[in-house]
Deep mutational scan, measured.
Amino acid sequence: QTVHVKGVQYHFPNPEEAVKFALKVAKDLGGRVEFHGDEIHVE
């Protein structure tokens, strides 16, 4: 599972961890989380 944050990719073997990370980052940055297939983008 890959999380993209402002052009940087973070790889997580566990999808659940990836989602938790993405939600935390989005909250910290005041952004939103978008799901694109296997990828999660924080915009």
Rank of each mutant, 00 (worst) to 15 (best):
Q1A: 14
Q1S: 14
Q1F: 15
Q1L: 15
Q1W: 15
T2Q: 04
T2C: 07
T2R: 07
T2K: 07
T2I: 12
T2E: 03
T2N: 06
T2L: 07
T2D: 04
V3Y: 01
V3R: 00
V3K: 00
V3F: 02
V3M: 01
H4A: 05
H4E: 05
H4D: 04
H4N: 10
H4V: 15
H4I: 15
H4P: 01
V5Y: 10
V5L: 08
V5N: 02
V5A: 04
V5S: 03
V5I: 12
V5F: 10
K6L: 14
K6Y: 13
K6I: 07
K6P: 02
K6H: 13
K6F: 15
K6S: 12
K6T: 06
K6G: 14
G7R: 04
G7D: 06
G7M: 04
G7A: 04
G7E: 04
G7L: 04
G7V: 02
G7Q: 05
G7F: 04
V8F: 10
V8L: 10
V8Q: 10
V8S: 06
V8C: 14
Q9V: 15
Q9H: 09
Y10G: 00
Y10K: 02
H11C: 13
H11E: 06
H11S: 09
H11I: 09
H11Q: 08
H11L: 08
F12Q: 00
F12E: 00
F12Y: 03
F12T: 00
F12L: 04
F12V: 01
F12G: 00
F12M: 03
P13S: 14
P13I: 12
N14P: 00
P15Q: 13
P15R: 15
P15E: 10
P15D: 07
P15L: 15
E16F: 10
E16V: 10
E16Q: 11
E17I: 07
E17M: 10
E17W: 06
E17K: 05
A18E: 01
A18R: 00
A18H: 01
A18Y: 01
A18N: 00
A18C: 03
V19R: 11
V19D: 03
V19F: 14
K20C: 14
K20I: 09
K20F: 08
K20L: 10
F21M: 03
A22M: 03
A22Y: 03
A22W: 03
L23N: 12
L23C: 12
L23D: 07
L23G: 04
L23P: 00
K24M: 12
K24E: 11
K24Q: 14
K24S: 11
K24G: 08
K24T: 09
V25D: 00
V25A: 09
V25S: 05
A26D: 00
A26R: 02
K27G: 09
K27I: 09
K27T: 09
K27C: 13
K27Y: 11
K27E: 11
D28M: 14
D28K: 13
D28L: 14
L29D: 04
L29C: 11
L29Y: 09
L29S: 09
L29W: 09
L29E: 05
L29M: 12
G30I: 04
G30S: 06
G30L: 06
G30K: 08
G30R: 08
G31L: 13
G31K: 03
G31A: 11
G31E: 03
G31V: 06
G31C: 10
R32V: 11
R32N: 06
V33W: 04
V33A: 04
V33F: 04
V33E: 00
V33Y: 04
E34I: 15
E34G: 06
E34M: 14
E34T: 14
E34C: 15
F35A: 04
F35P: 02
F35G: 02
F35D: 03
F35W: 12
H36D: 07
H36Q: 08
H36K: 13
H36R: 14
H36P: 03
H36E: 06
H36F: 11
H36M: 09
H36C: 12
G37C: 09
G37I: 05
G37R: 07
G37M: 07
D38P: 08
D38E: 10
D38A: 11
D38Y: 10
D38V: 09
E39L: 07
E39D: 11
E39K: 07
E39I: 11
I40G: 01
I40H: 02
H41V: 09
H41G: 02
H41T: 07
H41D: 03
H41R: 10
H41S: 06
V42Y: 02
V42H: 01
V42E: 01
E43P: 04
E43L: 15
E43S: 12
